[in-house]
């Protein structure tokens, strides 16, 4: 029992330590280096992390620390945000093979992936980018390549993701961009719909 108390104390102490270490800005270099490594992407610096050429390559290699960082990248805020703010509607077309799920260039035959533009949410929360998978003339899946993240945004983004995305999500059910707004996440919902609408227009 003494060891259990020791373990529980350790759990509490290490959780606190981790949160405190992350909470103080500049305390750690590791996490800061990861996002800043992404703007090497020439097409849209920092805006569209999934377009980072490292992302598709990360999947097969499966090396531990870096891919896990890049896999999470869409949910992490972009340090270069203010300087690269782009108006909504910028078409970043045909990014088909970049999504983590795809098998590079195979799906050209029956299913297509269409990526919507990166849309800035109101109130400066972050960016939303939607990608839909189209089979024939039906949407069969929807994924978000980026969503606002950090602090409060995580939870709203999670709600939006849960409602809209996936093979059983609202996008697939409704087959249109007329989605119900997620309560408490109006800005994110609207940005989502905007990106989705553009993707649908482009696909059909």
């Amino acid at each position: 029992m003494r060891r259990a108390l020791f373990a529980i104390t350790g759990l509490a102490a290490s959780t606190t330590a981790l949160v405190v270490l992350k909470g103080s800005p500049g305390a750690t270099q590791v996490a800061q280096n990861l996002p800043t490594a992404q703007p090497v992407n020439p097409s849209g610096p920092g805006v569209d992390p999934s377009a980072d050429p490292a992302a598709p390559a990360a999947d097969p290699t499966g090396a531990a620390p870096k891919p896990s960082g890049t896999a999470d990248a869409p949910t992490s805020p972009k340090p270069t945000k203010s300087s690269t703010t782009r108006p909504s509607g910028t078409k970043t077309t045909a990014k088909a093979p970049t999504a983590p799920k795809t098998t590079t260039k195979a799906p050209q035959s029956t299913t297509r992936r269409v990526t919507g533009p990166t849309v800035d949410t109101a109130e400066d929360y972050g960016y939303v980018q939607v990608q839909i998978v189209v089979s024939g003339n039906k949407i069969i899946d929807a994924v978000t390549l980026s969503l606002p993240s950090g602090g409060e945004s995580d939870i709203h983004s999670g709600d939006v993701r849960n409602k809209y995305n996936g093979t059983g999500g609202e996008v697939v059910q409704k087959q249109s961009a007329n989605l119900n707004t997620v309560s408490g996440a109006t800005a994110t919902s609207n940005a989502y719909k905007q990106s989705l609408r553009a993707a649908i227009e482009q696909a059909f």
Partner: peptide
């Protein structure tokens, strides 16, 4: 715990709610 550490940018836990949520994720 490493994925959390790498996926969370330093200095992002500014509000109490964010800090509490982060602790919830770690646990």
């Amino acid at each position: 715990v490493l994925p959390w550490w790498l996926g969370t940018p330093a200095g992002s836990l500014r509000t109490t709610a964010a800090t509490v949520t982060a602790a919830g994720r770690i646990t």
